[in-house]
């Protein structure tokens, strides 16, 4: 009899605990209801990509010396460098260069190791295509510069959360000269030079 009572008591305790946890969960959900939406109305508003954003790779055909370092550092040897030796000039002559962005993982190793800085990261991320072969960019396509979000008249550029002033969490309608929280790199440089 006592055992049964204890069982019933334990069961009731467990039920009460479950109810308590559901109540806690509900209070969290209810708390979220009070927060502002973080929605970015995408085609009309876009976030400004950060400085070190690793988007589609830009390639400058004239700077390339066909050294194939980008191929070697690439995890999957992705860039295709098509060159031939120009005997008259005793130099490699680049014919074609292409990167397939359907396969690229945007690790940025090629950009890092390129000796002539002919590869660079852009802030373009809208790479949708109807066919995956359309993502295989040749040197002409790689040479195009993307449209900047801040200069697009159709788009309201929005700052990312880390670039908002302190205490502000809504990127809309910021005052003109609002700076992000903390010191900017140039301010740090100024301080350092003042100290020395």
């Amino acid at each position: 009899m006592f055992k049964l009572l204890q069982q019933v008591g334990d069961y009731a305790k467990e039920a009460a605990q479950a109810a308590k946890f559901i109540g806690q969960g509900l209070s969290v959900t209810f708390d979220h209801m009070k927060r502002r939406p973080v929605t970015v109305q995408y085609p009309y508003e876009k976030l400004i990509p950060s400085e070190r954003y690793r988007g589609r790779i830009h390639f400058e055909f004239d700077k390339c010396i066909s050294c194939e370092v980008c191929v070697r550092v690439c995890p999957i040897n992705l860039p295709v460098v098509d060159w031939e030796f120009d005997k008259a000039a005793k130099k490699k002559k680049l014919n074609h260069y292409s990167i397939d962005f359907g396969v690229c993982i945007f690790c940025g190793n090629c950009v890092e190791y390129c000796p002539t800085n002919c590869l660079s990261m852009t802030e373009e991320y809208e790479l949708a295509a109807y066919d995956r072969h359309q993502l295989n960019y040749d040197s002409v396509a790689l040479g195009r510069l993307p449209y900047k979000v801040t200069q697009d008249p159709m788009v309201t550029p929005l700052r990312e959360f880390a670039y908002l002033p302190k205490g502000v969490d809504d990127p809309h309608d910021l005052p003109a000269g609002a700076q992000r929280a903390g010191r900017r790199p140039e301010e740090i440089v100024e301080e350092m030079s003042a100290k020395n």
């Binding site: 959900t29 979220h32 209801m33 927060r35 502002r36 939406p37 973080v38 929605t39």
Partner: peptide, 10 residues
């Protein structure tokens, strides 16, 4: 609407 509010959407 309530689902959106609970997930901080519009």
């Amino acid at each position: 609407k309530v689902s959106a509010a609970a997930q901080q959407r519009i």
